[in-house]
Design a binder for these strands. Structure first.
Length: 217
DNA sequence: GAAACGATTTGCT
DNA sequence: GCAAATCGTTTCT
């Protein structure tokens, strides 16, 4: 499979992404995400992701059904779901599962392997880039380093000519799992599922933060 | 039409 | 370690 990466490769990759997010997530570890924007090219190697199972998952944005914001998650796999968080930040997901389901994988952290200077510059503009390790450690930092924002909502990451490209890698030999970050209050039981995946011995993996206590509405 | 909340990050005490 | 920043989306009256 190595040499040719055109239509058939994309089709195969799309088929793999069409599995449930929980199955796809570990396969994305080690994969490369590349953005080709007017100001340059940045590539990140994914070291941490989280699975979200759509309508049946209290922690998912799609739990309460389809809306204008999460519509892309209900579509075919391989597209980008970008949302704005806390007014300031952006987070990016890769849509998974068959067309009609709303599962997706949140890109939580990665290692910048190409375009380090550009990523550093973007992060410095937004805030303070302390070190290379911090460039893409955390979902909003990752999106910033890649230059992702709402204009990339729905982008096809398997389009070789697209501005956002996902390059699958060989499945990592070993990874770790644990509870997801920051979604404890939403469903309670949701945190019982180890739907966070990360690579061992990676300094770029974001630090674990205990979920906030449940709060009634 | 109005109010509350959030898959976070950063800065300050 | 804790609280503020900041604003679109969702939900309720």
């Amino acid at each position: 499979m190595g040499s040719s990466m055109s239509a058939s490769g994309a089709a195969g990759a799309r088929a793999q992404l069409s599995a449930p997010a929980v199955d796809v997530a570990p396969h994305l570890l080690g994969a490369l995400v590349t953005t080709v924007l007017p100001d340059g090219v940045v590539t990140v190697r994914l070291t941490e992701v989280e699975a979200y199972e759509g309508e049946r998952d209290p922690g998912s944005h799609a739990f309460r059904g389809r809306s204008a914001r999460n519509a892309v998650m209900f579509g075919p796999a391989g597209h980008l779901y970008v949302y704005r968080h806390m007014g300031l930040h952006h987070c990016a997901n890769v849509v998974t599962g068959p067309d009609g389901t709303a599962s997706a994988v949140l890109l939580r952290a990665g290692e910048v392997v190409e375009g380090r200077d550009l990523a550093f510059e973007r992060r410095t503009r937004r805030g303070v880039a302390r070190s290379d390790v911090d460039l893409a450690r955390g979902p909003a930092r990752l999106a910033d380093a890649l230059g992702l924002d709402l204009t990339h909502y729905g982008a096809d990451v398997l389009d070789p000519a697209g501005v956002v490209r996902l390059t699958p890698a060989d499945p990592p030999p070993r990874w770790l799992t644990g509870p997801r970050v920051g979604v404890g209050g939403a469903g309670g039981d949701a945190t019982a599922f180890p739907w966070r995946f990360w690579l061992a011995d990676e300094p770029t993996v974001s630090v674990y933060r205990p979920a906030p206590p449940p709060r009634r509405r």
